[in-house]
């Protein structure tokens, strides 16, 4: 069942954030169809090393499709051709002998390239910091079952919370928009009672930060949904729009003096 593939890889190489990058062609031989895509790159890197060349830098960690660290634009598609699959879960049996594979980093102004295929996604952290939480200190919590959450709401919240923060939505969007990412978090909280107290503030603050980071806007192309390895749906974006619309009527900027006292 296992077969061996000979492939031509065209990989984006870029020394550093400021450096000029370009696609470099590497032939690879005898890649097992059982190997994962990243293992294929491991093999390439071992060979580059033997030849005294610098290995290709790429992000990865869990290699199980959950940490969101891996990325890669593979033949023009985020995380490769499979739906709801991360690059680390993509396997080489998906490719044919003789294929040429173009591998590029995520591209967006808000995701600057650090090196080769590695980009900086800290913009996402800053968006979460703006409001992607329920403000509850340790020690404040009541008994867990005092908060009842209907199964349907809990399921919808979980669907949205499944986002792995990989950035494929941004990378695949023609506008490099982060709407799906923000929408997933806003929806997660909007579906739960725990998210209600800060519901409007959250929508306003997260969207403001998203804009400030330089992500593009949503033009309802829905490429993000197809690209998302965690199956987040664009209905969350509609939800975010709704939350934002409501909040822009309901939410008045709080006075600065209310925080940081005492």
């Amino acid at each position: 069942m296992e077969k061996k593939l000979n492939l031509t890889l065209k990989i984006w190489r870029q020394k550093g954030p400021q450096a000029q990058g370009r696609l470099v062609t590497y032939p690879v031989q005898g890649v097992s169809t059982d190997a994962s895509f990243l293992e294929m790159l491991d093999v390439l890197n071992e060979e580059l090393l033997k030849k005294g060349e610098e290995p290709v830098a790429f992000d990865h960690d869990c290699r199980e499709g959950i940490c969101g660290m891996c990325s890669l634009m593979i033949n023009g598609q985020t995380h490769g051709p499979d739906r709801e699959t991360t690059t680390c879960q993509l396997h080489m049996r998906r490719f044919k002998d003789g294929d040429t594979i173009v591998i590029e980093p995520w591209r967006a102004k808000s995701f600057p390239i650090l090196k080769d295929l590695v980009v900086d996604r800290t913009a996402f952290d800053r968006v979460i910091a703006a409001g992607g939480y329920a403000s509850v200190n340790v020690g404040n919590a009541q008994d867990a079952n005092c908060i009842l959450v209907g199964k349907e709401s809990a399921d919808r919240a979980m669907d949205a919370a499944a986002c792995i923060g990989c950035g494929a939505c941004v990378a695949s969007c023609k506008n490099a928009s982060a709407m799906l990412f923000v929408a997933a978090k806003v929806t997660h909280f909007a579906e739960l009672p725990q998210g209600q107290p800060e519901r409007y503030k959250r929508a306003q603050a997260m969207v403001a930060q998203m804009d400030a980071e330089g992500f593009g806007g949503c033009t309802n192309t829905y490429e993000c949904e197809a690209a998302c390895p965690a199956g987040i749906q664009v209905t969350t974006i509609a939800k975010l729009n709704r939350e934002y619309l409501k909040s822009s009527f309901a939410y008045a900027e709080e006075s600065k003096s209310s925080e940081g006292e005492g």
Partner: peptide, 20 residues
């Protein structure tokens, strides 16, 4: 909007294919 959206990705991809 269009200008902003273009600016959000100053350098485009060499290859692009929809997953839809």
């Amino acid at each position: 909007i269009t200008r902003e959206n273009r600016a959000a990705r100053p350098e485009g991809y060499q290859m692009r294919r929809s997953k839809q």
